[in-house]
Amino acid sequence: MPMIDVYATAGTFADKHRLAADLAAAVMAVEQVPDIPMFRQNTAAFVHELPAGDLSNVDGGSNYVRVQVLTNAGALDRGKQLAVVERLTHIVADAAGDPSLFARTWVLLTEAPDGGWGLEGHANTNAELVAAARAQIASLQAGQGAGG
């Protein structure tokens, strides 16, 4: 259930909502979590627009994008880390309509400590999140069996 934050200068993206949805879907796909409401409704991206002049590298360049992905501990093994960074970088460059932005997109992967993923007012451990997902899957499967 990653949280994704994108920081860019205002005007970088024409359709911020589509960008947010595409980033969230991409991370969920790379994580390979079940396609259940718990994950779909709690994997989200936030696009933060910075006013001109609020971003600079050492040389004064300001045409960069920073993407920070926060996951629960251990959610991304090395292969998934590589896939997330590559995929999100492509999505950002495509959303900006600027292929050169691929070289100026920074993606930071951050893990919340076990017990540090708050959902529904509770600081969940990884085991609690897995148990909640399994319970929802069982509930959905039971509901399908009753109707069909």
Results as ranks from 00 to 15, higher is better:
119 L>S: 00
52 A>S: 13
119 L>F: 05
24 A>K: 07
62 S>A: 10
40 R>D: 04
70 L>H: 11
93 A>Q: 00
15 D>A: 11
55 L>E: 05
83 A>Y: 04
75 A>V: 07
94 D>P: 00
101 L>A: 04
96 A>V: 02
48 H>I: 11
46 F>Q: 13
84 V>E: 01
16 K>W: 07
19 L>N: 00
64 Y>L: 06
41 Q>V: 06
115 G>N: 05
23 L>P: 01
23 L>D: 01
117 W>V: 02
103 A>N: 14
11 G>R: 07
8 A>G: 03
71 T>S: 13
114 D>Y: 03
74 G>M: 07
36 I>T: 00
48 H>N: 04
96 A>C: 07
127 A>T: 05
53 G>S: 06
24 A>P: 01
130 V>R: 11
96 A>P: 00
126 N>Q: 11
18 R>T: 15
41 Q>E: 14
89 T>W: 08
53 G>E: 03
104 R>L: 00
38 M>W: 15
15 D>E: 12
22 D>E: 14
7 Y>T: 01
14 A>L: 12
16 K>F: 11
67 V>Q: 03
29 A>P: 09
14 A>C: 10
59 D>K: 15
57 N>D: 15
16 K>T: 09
114 D>A: 08
90 H>N: 12
82 L>V: 13
117 W>D: 01
63 N>H: 14
113 P>D: 13
109 L>N: 06
64 Y>M: 04
11 G>A: 09
45 A>Y: 02
85 V>Q: 13
18 R>F: 06
83 A>W: 12
19 L>Y: 05
9 T>G: 00
70 L>D: 09
40 R>V: 09
121 G>R: 03
15 D>K: 13
44 A>M: 13
73 A>K: 12
116 G>F: 04
79 G>E: 08
124 N>W: 02
101 L>Q: 03
49 E>F: 10
63 N>D: 14
129 L>I: 06
106 W>L: 12
108 L>M: 14
67 V>M: 04
39 F>Q: 12
76 L>I: 04
108 L>A: 11
19 L>H: 05
43 T>K: 01
102 F>P: 05
14 A>N: 08
76 L>Y: 09
109 L>R: 08
94 D>S: 06
111 E>G: 07
82 L>Q: 14
68 Q>S: 14
34 P>F: 05
30 V>I: 14
53 G>I: 01
60 G>I: 00
115 G>I: 02
42 N>L: 07
97 G>R: 05
120 E>R: 15
75 A>S: 12
82 L>R: 15
